[in-house]
Amino acid sequence: MNSGLTSHSAAEELQELDRVGQVVRDRSRWYRRYLLALGTGTIAYYAAVNLAAPASAALVFAIAAIWTAFITFLYWWSRSQPVMWRGLRPLRILLMVLYFTLVIVSLLLNVTVLHDAPWSWALGIIPALPCLIGSWTVLRR
């Protein structure tokens, strides 16, 4: 029954609300590590493929296989996390849209205007940027 509820017990319930909210936020920090891994992995993948492409097609194939395994692992790892803070939802959607858009942009640049450019290995920085900035944003929340 709630007939005996005092302002004190209401305040206690609100404290519980803050407590669980804080734990959920803390346990959602895995998303920062996820973004860092995706961002640095993307930079490494672009660099490796661009540097390996002139040398050997087999090497590029091997790098692509490693990248696929890495992305699969990241996906599995993110799915195995116990909780995701609701406050990160808008950021998560924005980052994923930006990431995939910038992957397409960087691939287009790589095969068009920046084809054979000496620094095209660094193109991975473009899609990685939202991940790295997002990681920093999650850290500050």
Partner: peptide
């Protein structure tokens, strides 16, 4: 209003989704 159900609801209100074991340990 029940304390346990309030904690469960509070956990889920802060989450997009939460795993059963996580809620069990938190509550």
């Amino acid at each position: 209003h029940s304390p346990v159900r309030f904690s469960i609801m509070a956990t889920l209100a802060a989450s997009e989704q939460a795993e059963f074991g996580f809620v069990r340990d938190l509550v």
